[in-house]
Amino acid sequence: MLMRFTFPKVGKGAALSVGVHHGALTEGLATLMVVMVSLTLKKKEQGFFVKTWIASIWKMTIHILSSDMTGGIMNPASVSVIYT
């Protein structure tokens, strides 16, 4: 009770902004794209740092583009659920 009194906004995270099916499908497609790029880079004969740079930029791009479409579906810690 002391924690709730001291920090009243803790546990009152973001509500879901998309449906469960839409968020799961978007997350699945984003994961598939990341895996495809990772496997493609594994076969290339480029330097380690070039592969790491391309993979990092690609993963951040996918994360930024799909973050609004997945909502809080794949991150249950950011979703507020009211238990009684």
Rank of each mutant, 00 (worst) to 15 (best):
I62M: 10
K51N: 12
G11T: 04
I57H: 14
V10A: 03
S78V: 06
V35S: 08
A55G: 13
M36Y: 08
T26K: 13
H63Y: 14
Q46K: 07
I62C: 08
M3T: 11
Y83P: 04
E27G: 15
L2S: 01
V37N: 05
L25D: 10
H63S: 08
H63C: 04
W58H: 09
L39M: 12
M33S: 11
T31E: 01
L25E: 06
S17H: 04
A77Q: 05
G47T: 00
L16Q: 01
A77P: 00
G19L: 03
F49S: 13
S78E: 12
L32I: 06
A30E: 06
I64F: 13
V35C: 11
I57M: 15
G23I: 00
E45L: 12
L65H: 14
T31N: 04
Y83M: 05
F7K: 04
S17L: 10
A14V: 08
G23C: 09
W58M: 03
F48Q: 14
M33D: 10
P76E: 05
F48C: 13
T26D: 04
M36H: 08
H63Q: 00
M33L: 15
F49M: 10
I73D: 00
V20A: 09
P76A: 06
L39S: 13
V35D: 02
V35L: 13
T40G: 15
S17T: 12
V37W: 04
M74I: 08
M60V: 07
W53M: 09
I54R: 03
L41Y: 05
S67G: 07
V35Y: 11
S67V: 01
T84H: 05
A77E: 01
V34N: 12
S78I: 05
S66P: 03
T40A: 13
T31W: 08
W58G: 01
F7H: 03
V18M: 07
A55Q: 10
W53P: 00
G23S: 05
I57E: 08
K43N: 15
A55H: 11
T52G: 12
L65D: 10
K42T: 06
Y83Q: 00
V18N: 05
T6C: 03
M69F: 15
Y83E: 02
V10H: 05
A24H: 07
I82M: 02
S78H: 10
E45K: 12
I62N: 06
G72D: 02
Q46L: 13
F5Q: 00
S78R: 07
P76K: 02
A77K: 01
V50Q: 04
G71I: 01
P76N: 08
L29T: 15
K44Y: 09
I62D: 06
T31L: 09
P76R: 10
I54E: 00
P8H: 07
S78T: 05
V18G: 06
G19P: 05
A30T: 12
W53V: 08
V50D: 02
A77D: 02
K44L: 09
M3P: 04
T52P: 07
V10S: 09
E45D: 15
G72R: 02
T70K: 02
K12R: 14
F49T: 08
P76H: 02
S56H: 03
A55C: 12
A24S: 03
L39I: 09
A55E: 13
L16V: 02
T52D: 14
L41A: 07
I82W: 03
A15I: 01
V20S: 04
P76G: 11
A30S: 14
G19A: 07
G13H: 00
V35E: 03
M3G: 04
K12S: 12
